[in-house]
Amino acid sequence: MRVARVALPTTVDEAVVALRDAPGAQLLAGGTDFCVEVNFGLRRPPAVVALRRVRELRRHAVTPETVVIGAGTTYADMGDPGLSSALPALAAAARTVGSPQVRNAGTLGGNVATASPAGDTLPLLAALDARVVLRGPSGERTASLGEVVTGVKTTSIGPDEVVVEVVVDRRPGPQQFVKVGTRNAMVIAIASAAVVVDVEAHEVRVALGSVAPVPVRATAAEVHIADAIDWRAAGGPRASEGALARFGELVAGAASPITDHRSTAEYRRLAVGVIARRALERCVARAA
């Protein structure tokens, strides 16, 4: 009889060593996806490296330029005042994840590494061009979110690598996260959108969830609306009704959704255009 190996490291370096020493070992963070797969016979880990005790993973740092969020930061943590004032759309996204119990356990690093098309934090991270810091036996590397999340539940994270933290640049201006589900709480996204307005750079960043294998940026919509917004209007940026409508259409055009048991491709495309436009309208006034 073999005895399964379980490592309960308290530092990232210990976790990396434990991963190296137990080939085939799987990383366990908040467990909110991992354990479901185990419970239903879809995952049979020969060994586990559990990250819940790694305190350094749970830190975050907000500076004037960046926000650094430890991979062990839970969805509940994302509502902490410091973090949520710097990244209100991340807090909003976190608030839509599962149940309060799940939000107490699930982590940012887990959301990235699981790489579900419906991962609720991913659209905002994509909109902010987040960098993911990974550590392995040969040291640390930084990769863009797009480089890490490569497809439906697939990533470029090495079997010996641990997600350490996610880094985003701060963007002055409003941001929003909106998510469509068939229930008013505790629901997987049918479509989601994060909108970030940078009032200094005069940029609008839009990323979409659940409408493509990976989070996608609606670049045509971004370019269109950045041009269309009157950034210097009294009372803040504003856009015309026509420009906003066009923005919604371009967002819908950026989606490449599928039909599944949760919804249809057509609805996802329709909905993502509507919610992106509404999110933008909360950030930018409508010109009379």
Binding site: R95, T96, F177, V178, G181, R183, S192, R278
Partner: peptide, 16 residues
């Protein structure tokens, strides 16, 4: 927003 259709997803404003 929790009292509006869409709930936690913040999909709607009262005008919608």
């Amino acid at each position: 927003m929790m009292a509006l259709p869409g709930g936690a997803g913040a999909t709607a404003d009262p005008v919608h």
